[in-house]
Computed example of a mutant assay.
Amino acid sequence: MTALAPVIPEDDDRLTALASERYRNDQRLSGDWNETLDTLLSHRSVRNYLPKSVPDSVLHLTIAAAQSAPSSSNLQAWSVIAIEDEARKARLNAVAGTQRQIAQAPLLLIWLADLNRPRKIATDDDAPAEGLDYVESFLLGVIDAALAAQNAVSALESLGLGTCYIGAIRNDPEFVARELELPEGVFPVFGLTVGYPDPAVPAGIKPRLPQSTIFHRERYDTTPRPGDLKDYNAALGSFQAEQAIPVIDWTEQVKNRIGTVEALKGRHLLAAAARKLGFQLK
Rank of each mutant, 00 (worst) to 15 (best):
M1H: 00
L4S: 07
A5M: 03
A5Q: 13
V7Y: 00
D12L: 04
L15C: 08
A19E: 05
A19H: 05
S20D: 10
E21Y: 12
Y23W: 11
N25Y: 07
N25S: 13
N25R: 07
D26N: 15
D26A: 15
N34D: 15
T36M: 11
D38M: 12
T39L: 15
T39P: 06
L40I: 14
H43C: 08
R47I: 15
N48P: 05
Y49I: 13
L50G: 08
S53K: 07
V54T: 07
P55K: 08
P55I: 11
D56K: 00
V58S: 09
L59V: 14
L59W: 09
H60P: 02
H60R: 12
I63A: 14
A64S: 13
A65C: 10
A65F: 00
A65R: 04
A65T: 02
A66P: 03
S68D: 08
A69I: 05
S71G: 05
S73M: 09
N74W: 01
L75A: 01
L75V: 00
W78E: 06
S79R: 07
S79M: 05
A82R: 04
E86P: 01
R88A: 15
K89I: 10
K89E: 10
A90P: 01
A90Y: 04
A96W: 04
T98H: 06
A103C: 02
A103P: 04
L109K: 00
R119K: 03
A122C: 14
D126S: 10
D126H: 05
A127T: 07
G131Q: 11
V135W: 10
S137Q: 12
L140Y: 01
G141I: 03
V142N: 02
A145H: 03
A145E: 08
A146M: 13
A148G: 01
A148F: 03
A152C: 13
A152W: 07
S154I: 08
L156D: 00
E157D: 03
S158D: 04
S158A: 14
T163I: 07
C164I: 02
Y165R: 01
Y165V: 10
Y165H: 08
I166G: 02
I169W: 00
P173Q: 02
P173N: 02
E174A: 09
E174G: 00
F175K: 02
V176K: 02
A177W: 04
E179N: 08
E184D: 10
V189G: 12
G191A: 13
L192N: 01
L192E: 06
T193Y: 05
G195K: 04
Y196K: 01
A200F: 13
A200H: 12
V201D: 09
P202D: 15
A203Q: 11
A203N: 11
I205C: 14
P210F: 02
S212F: 07
T213H: 06
I214G: 10
F215G: 06
R217I: 10
E218R: 02
E218I: 08
Y220K: 07
T222R: 12
T223F: 05
D228H: 03
D228E: 12
N233P: 15
A234H: 14
L236M: 13
F239E: 06
Q240A: 14
A241F: 06
A241M: 07
Q243A: 13
I245R: 06
I245A: 12
P246H: 12
V247P: 09
D249Y: 11
Q253K: 02
N256R: 11
N256F: 08
G259M: 14
G259H: 12
E262C: 05
L264P: 05
A273F: 10
A273R: 02
A274C: 10
R275I: 12
L277G: 06
Q280V: 09
L281K: 03
